[in-house]
Amino acid sequence: MPNIEKLALPIWCYQTEKSLRFAFSQWKNLKTLIIAHEHSYTGIFDFKAVGESCSNLTNLKYLGHLEDYKTREIVPYLQSLKRLSLRCSLVSYEAVYWLIIGLQNLTMLNVSHCKNSYFHAITRSRDDFVITTATQKLDKFIICPQDCRICKDHQCCYSWSYLAEDWRNDEIKELDF
């Protein structure tokens, strides 16, 4: 299927680095990628392979634990991203900041229902520096309200939230599953 434009990769689908690289080399027209990633189950996901092959990729939804080193891999290779959703992921404030300043074409970022490394919801009252940077640079920055029902209902580690239904929805329509 060389002409697909939207692809969702569930947590259990990864093969080897070589097979992943080959598959993405065939998808030159890919515009939207939705990926559930849990390093302990799937191993390393190669964003370099995606970036080198999929120059039309403008939409990414990532679900899982986005570690700081993964952010450093995303930024140089996915510069064409306009819309990024980390909805229901576990991500640090630093990773969010580096994505905001590093992805030059980014216009929308969704961090709703995310937890940071200390399991606090990412909200307006947490890290004003990240919020200020995002609101100055982005057209749309989506975070949870203080009294978010979804965040209050989920006290578990958010890297497991792909088992829940909440991650399938998205406030960015191009990334709704």
Rank of each mutant, 00 (worst) to 15 (best):
Thr16Phe: 10
Leu138Lys: 09
Thr132Lys: 15
Asp139Thr: 13
Ser89Arg: 02
Ser92Leu: 09
Asp68Gln: 08
Ala164Arg: 15
Ser25Ala: 14
Cys151Phe: 04
Gly64Arg: 00
Glu52Asp: 06
Leu103Val: 12
Ala164Asp: 14
Ala36Trp: 04
Leu84Gly: 07
Cys144Asp: 15
Trp160Val: 05
Pro10Lys: 13
Ile74Trp: 07
Lys48Gly: 06
Ser19Cys: 11
Cys114Thr: 03
Phe45Arg: 04
Ser117Val: 09
Phe141Asn: 04
Ile11Pro: 06
Ala134Trp: 05
Cys157Trp: 01
Cys13Leu: 13
Lys28His: 13
Ile150Gly: 02
Ser125Phe: 10
Glu52Gln: 15
Ser159Val: 10
Val96Glu: 04
Asn116Met: 10
Ser89Met: 05
Ser125Lys: 14
Asn116Tyr: 11
Leu60Ser: 07
Lys70Pro: 00
Cys151Glu: 05
Trp98Arg: 10
His65Thr: 05
Glu38Tyr: 13
Val75Leu: 14
Trp160Pro: 00
Leu20Asp: 03
Arg126Leu: 15
Asn56Lys: 15
Tyr118Ser: 14
Asn110Leu: 04
Asn29Ile: 00
Ser25Asn: 08
Leu109Glu: 00
Ser85Ile: 02
Ser80Cys: 08
Gln136Pro: 00
Asn59Pro: 06
Ser40Cys: 05
Asp68Glu: 09
Leu90Gln: 05
Tyr162Asp: 03
Leu86Val: 09
Glu5Arg: 15
Gln136Gly: 07
Ala164Val: 01
His154Ile: 11
Tyr14Ile: 00
Leu81Glu: 01
Ile4Thr: 11
Ile143Pro: 03
Arg149Pro: 00
Asp139Tyr: 05
Pro10Gly: 13
Ser85Val: 04
Thr123Ser: 14
Lys82Gly: 13
Leu175Glu: 04
Phe119Gln: 11
Ser161His: 06
Ile100Asp: 07
Leu163Gln: 13
Leu66Cys: 12
Asn116Ala: 07
Met108Cys: 11
Val91Gln: 01
Arg21Ile: 07
Asn3Pro: 02
Leu84Phe: 15
Ile34Asn: 07
Arg126Trp: 09
Trp167Asn: 02
Cys88Ala: 12
Lys31Leu: 05
Gln146Pro: 00
Asn116Pro: 03
Leu99Met: 14
Asp147Gln: 11
Gln15Phe: 09
Asp128His: 13
Cys88Lys: 03
Lys140His: 10
Ser85Asp: 04
Asp176Lys: 14
Thr123Val: 14
Ser125Gln: 11
Phe22Arg: 12
Ser161Gly: 04
Lys70His: 05
His120Asn: 12
Thr123Phe: 08
Gln155Asn: 13
Gly43Lys: 00
Ser80Asp: 07
Trp167Glu: 01
Gly43Phe: 02
Asp147Lys: 09
Ala36Arg: 07
Ser117His: 11
Ala95Asn: 05
Met1Thr: 07
Tyr69His: 11
Asn169Ala: 14
Leu33Thr: 07
Ile142Ala: 02
Asp127Trp: 09
